[in-house]
């Protein structure tokens, strides 16, 4: 009946947000969301399985904090202009994370944090090519990705 309960719920909530709340809209939105869930099931996407739900708020908090921090850092660098010497460069990081959903979440985290950009992922070797805006210490960035994000994602997804 409900192959993708989370997707169905999210679609119903989105419908309610876009229209104003009334019982009729609730009925209509739920119906549309259920049809969409069935449609998604017809595509047979790999069903993501989360192992540790409880770690998601922690990850969200860490990412929000990092986005604020790196927003300030990058804005500062841009406003300083060329007065400060800054090196940027590409960094190759070997990843233990192979779960497609986990990689997708890591890509969203890395790219929406100003200062780091996901360039390429080689799935045969499991290496990530990352561009870092303010590359002072390579080890520091390696440590950030490996310990701060990948460890949590590994626990959540694998």
């Amino acid at each position: 009946m409900l192959p993708y309960p989370l997707l169905t719920a999210a679609l119903a909530i989105m419908w309610m947000l876009l229209t104003s709340f009334s019982p009729g809209q609730l009925l209509l939105g739920t119906a549309v969301a259920m049809v969409a869930g069935q449609g998604m099931a017809a595509l047979h996407p790999a069903k993501p399985r989360l192992r540790r739900w409880d770690l998601i708020p922690k990850l969200t908090a860490i990412v929000l904090y990092d986005i604020v921090r790196s927003n300030i850092a990058v804005a500062g660098i841009i406003l300083q202009g060329r007065r400060r010497q800054r090196t940027s460069g590409l960094l190759t990081i070997p990843l233990e994370l192979h779960h497609p959903m986990g990689l997708a979440v890591l890509a969203v985290i890395v790219t929406s944090t100003p200062g780091t950009a996901w360039i390429d992922y080689n799935s045969a070797r499991g290496t990530l090519l990352l561009h870092v805006f303010d590359l002072v210490d390579e080890k520091e960035w390696l440590d950030l990705i490996k310990n701060r994000y990948e460890q949590l994602l590994l626990e959540i997804f694998e």
Partner: peptide, 12 residues
Amino acid sequence: SPADGETDEPAA
């Protein structure tokens, strides 16, 4: 990147 030639699609 250490990959020569063909790069793979991202897993996302």
